[in-house]
Computed example of a mutant assay.
Amino acid sequence: MQHRTASAGKIRPGARWDGGKRAGALLEVRDVTKTYRRGVWPRRRSRHVLRGADLELYPGEVVGLVGENGSGKSTLMKIIVGGLRRDSGAIRLAGQVGYCPQEPILYTRLTCDEHFALFGRGYGMTPAEITGASNEIYDALGFGQWAESRVDELSGGTRAKVNLALALLPDRQVLLLDEPYAGFDWDTYQRFWELSALRRAAGRALLIVSHFITDEDRFDRIYDLRDGKAVPR
């Protein structure tokens, strides 16, 4: 994986980026529904989380998905990556995905380096590619000094860096990031946006989930998840 330093202008909702040519959406979500059911009759209860959610994600743009806790943001992300079954609707994905879940999925007895090696092999990367990509990520997020430390020795903020780093490792066309900067200090927060700008400039598509957004100008588009539907802001 190499750093990309080219700049890119704002992408309008109708515009497409593909090395200067027009291209289709990398991700399309259409009328997705999801209901959670709990208990047994006669006390069985249903909670309708998604009620026909729609969204699109194009190359070279950063899109926000915003909603209150419990609004269904993480549910939608899990459905997109195949970790949860939807009740109805359709999803079309053109490209490979890097996914950063809200809750870090890490192995407490493995070091940061060992996580990169394990996940990189799962992504089908060569040892040289893993080394190159991990070194760049250590430098970009500023936690190289913890490379040989086990996860159970790390602070919560550094664990969050590892969680994000594993999604960035293979440089996928689509990045789905669920609360990626939760627990970051200000310096790391700025580093995160520098990394996001590099990937956006290279034509990657980023969907960033958060319960609130303070820097709206960093996004090309924002969806508000309300009443089970993704409403363009």
Results as ranks from 00 to 15, higher is better:
98 G>H: 09
147 A>C: 04
120 G>W: 07
58 Y>Q: 12
120 G>P: 01
26 L>R: 10
97 V>H: 03
227 D>Y: 12
194 E>I: 12
23 A>C: 07
103 E>I: 11
195 L>E: 13
38 R>C: 08
221 R>D: 04
222 I>M: 09
80 I>K: 05
73 K>A: 03
129 E>P: 01
117 A>F: 05
201 A>C: 04
185 D>S: 08
215 D>Q: 14
43 R>M: 13
88 S>P: 11
114 E>K: 08
26 L>Y: 09
47 R>A: 00
146 W>N: 13
59 P>W: 07
87 D>C: 04
178 D>P: 10
33 T>Y: 11
68 E>S: 13
66 V>A: 00
85 R>I: 04
166 L>V: 06
73 K>L: 03
113 D>N: 14
92 R>G: 03
223 Y>F: 08
6 A>M: 02
144 G>K: 12
82 G>M: 03
110 L>F: 10
2 Q>H: 12
170 P>H: 12
23 A>Q: 10
137 I>C: 11
70 G>H: 08
86 R>M: 14
129 E>V: 06
107 Y>G: 10
123 Y>C: 11
188 T>D: 11
113 D>Q: 11
59 P>L: 09
206 L>N: 09
65 L>E: 05
172 R>C: 10
121 R>Q: 07
226 R>A: 14
162 V>W: 08
203 G>D: 04
61 E>R: 07
218 R>D: 06
8 A>G: 09
17 W>E: 12
213 I>N: 09
210 S>R: 15
75 T>F: 07
62 V>T: 14
24 G>S: 14
151 V>T: 08
110 L>E: 02
147 A>K: 15
89 G>Y: 06
29 V>S: 03
175 L>G: 04
74 S>D: 00
229 K>G: 10
90 A>K: 06
160 A>Q: 15
133 A>V: 03
150 R>N: 10
218 R>H: 15
229 K>H: 12
5 T>H: 15
163 N>W: 07
197 A>T: 02
182 A>L: 13
27 L>W: 04
179 E>W: 14
115 H>P: 13
127 P>R: 06
51 R>C: 09
203 G>W: 04
189 Y>R: 14
163 N>K: 08
105 I>C: 05
145 Q>L: 12
61 E>Q: 13
62 V>F: 07
171 D>A: 15
48 H>G: 03
230 A>C: 13
153 E>T: 04
52 G>H: 09
32 V>M: 05
190 Q>A: 15
105 I>E: 15
174 V>H: 02
105 I>H: 04
154 L>Q: 11
196 S>F: 13
191 R>I: 10
62 V>I: 15
20 G>Y: 02
185 D>R: 09
95 G>H: 03
65 L>N: 06
20 G>N: 01
103 E>C: 02
78 K>W: 00
156 G>T: 00
125 M>D: 08
154 L>T: 11
29 V>W: 04
138 Y>L: 01
228 G>Y: 11
143 F>L: 08
131 T>H: 14
48 H>N: 07
69 N>L: 02
135 N>E: 15
87 D>F: 02
94 A>T: 00
98 G>K: 11
